[in-house]
Amino acid sequence: MGWLVALAVGTATGVLSGFGVGGGTLLLIYMTAFAALPQDLAQGINLLYFLPTAAAALPAHAKNGFIERAALWPAILAGLAGAALAAWIATALDVAILHRIFGGFLLAAGLRELLGKSARGGPQARDRKAR
């Protein structure tokens, strides 16, 4: 039955991942805290999980014109370099420490996102109404 729960959890977080909002982080939390998987295995699964999830969501995003094409190449190329370096280090490190660093980062980012004033302002902050 474990796989059925995993399927359901993957589907639920997949919706959020498809939006681009932390579905993977929730999945990581589920896998480490509830499914009792070791942190490094959970991280690997989470990476793999994003491949079908993002691939499934992207055609709709592209069709609806929400992808900023100018961003793709610079961000992806730089991102690949960063990801290669960091994944190499992470697979050699004590993941418990990584987990804490990640926690601190999330806390700071979440507080800023929740409490911080919108830096976007103007019509950009309310794209729904402008359409």
Binding site: G24, L28, F50, A81, A83, A86, I89, L98, H99
Partner: peptide, 11 residues
């Protein structure tokens, strides 16, 4: 984003 992605396996 790449650094975080590789390091933490997500996020």
């Amino acid at each position: 984003a790449g650094l975080a992605n590789g390091f933490f396996g997500g996020g």
